[in-house]
Simulated assay, not measured.
Amino acid sequence: MTYDLAVWDGEQPLDEEAGALFDELSERYLESDDTPTEPSPRIEAYVNALVERYPEDAPGSPWASPPVMDEAAGPIVYLLMSYRRAEEVSEYAAALAREHGLVCYDPQGETLRD
């Protein structure tokens, strides 16, 4: 069981607009073979900072599908966390997104994360 978050580079949407924007970014960058798969510099810096705090190869790693950078493309990254550490890691991931000026969205709750 996983807990997922999406983090992307862009203007902060209204909560009611975030789901549609997530769907659009996901379809365009994460599900398409027609777009570049390299993460943007801001997303790459974010993921690097995140895995510095929570290493992918450490015992008890919270990541459900490492390497995390493989889940990043263009301006978006989709984070899959082990449910047992989801509360701790998702709180940090959301705070780190804020520090990096990125949007953090919870697709399960269909809401923005602060």
Score class of each variant (00 low, 15 high):
Glu24Trp: 14
Leu80Ala: 11
Glu16Ile: 15
Pro66Asn: 11
Asn48Arg: 13
Arg42Asn: 06
Glu110Ile: 13
Ala45His: 09
Glu87Ser: 15
Val103Arg: 00
Leu96Met: 07
Leu25Arg: 02
Asp23Asn: 07
Pro66Arg: 09
Ser82Asn: 12
Tyr46Thr: 03
Leu102Cys: 01
Ala73Lys: 03
Tyr105Val: 05
Met81Thr: 09
Ser26Trp: 08
Val51Ala: 07
Ala93Gln: 02
Val7Tyr: 00
Asp4Leu: 07
Ala95Asp: 15
Thr111Phe: 11
Pro36Thr: 12
Ser90His: 04
Pro66Asp: 05
Phe22Cys: 07
Asp9Trp: 01
Ala73Gln: 04
Glu44Val: 07
Trp8Phe: 04
Pro62Ile: 10
Asp15Arg: 11
Ile76Gln: 00
Asp9Tyr: 04
Pro107Asp: 09
Ser40Phe: 10
Thr35Cys: 13
Tyr78Lys: 12
Ala94Glu: 00
Asp9Phe: 05
Glu87Gly: 15
Ser90Asp: 04
Gly10Gln: 12
Gly74Val: 04
Asp57Tyr: 13
Glu27Asn: 11
Leu14Tyr: 08
Asp4Ala: 14
Glu110Tyr: 15
Arg113Trp: 03
Leu79Glu: 00
Tyr78Ile: 09
Gln108Phe: 15
Ser26Ala: 10
Leu5Glu: 07
Pro36Leu: 15
Thr111Cys: 15
Glu11Asp: 10
Ala86Lys: 05
Thr2Cys: 14
Ser82His: 15
Ile76Tyr: 02
Ala45Tyr: 10
Glu17Ser: 10
Asp4Pro: 01
Gly19Lys: 06
Glu110Pro: 12
Pro41Phe: 07
Ala72Pro: 01
Asp34Lys: 15
Asp106Ile: 06
His100Ala: 08
Glu31Lys: 08
Gln12Arg: 14
Ala20Leu: 12
Asp33Trp: 12
Gly60His: 11
Glu16Asp: 13
Gly101Ile: 06
Leu102His: 00
Glu17Ile: 10
Trp8Gly: 07
Tyr54Pro: 03
Ala94Lys: 00
Gly74Ala: 07
Met81Gly: 05
Leu14Arg: 14
Ala72Gly: 02
Asp114Arg: 09
Glu11Trp: 08
Ile43Gly: 02
Cys104Arg: 04
Val7Trp: 00
Glu44Pro: 02
Pro107Cys: 09
Asp114His: 13
Asp33Glu: 15
Met1Cys: 14
Tyr54Asn: 08
Leu21Met: 14
Ala93Thr: 05
Arg98Ser: 10
Pro75Asp: 04
Glu16Met: 13
Asn48Ile: 02
Met1Trp: 10
Ala49Lys: 02
Ala73Tyr: 01
Asp4His: 09
Gly74His: 03
Ala73Trp: 00
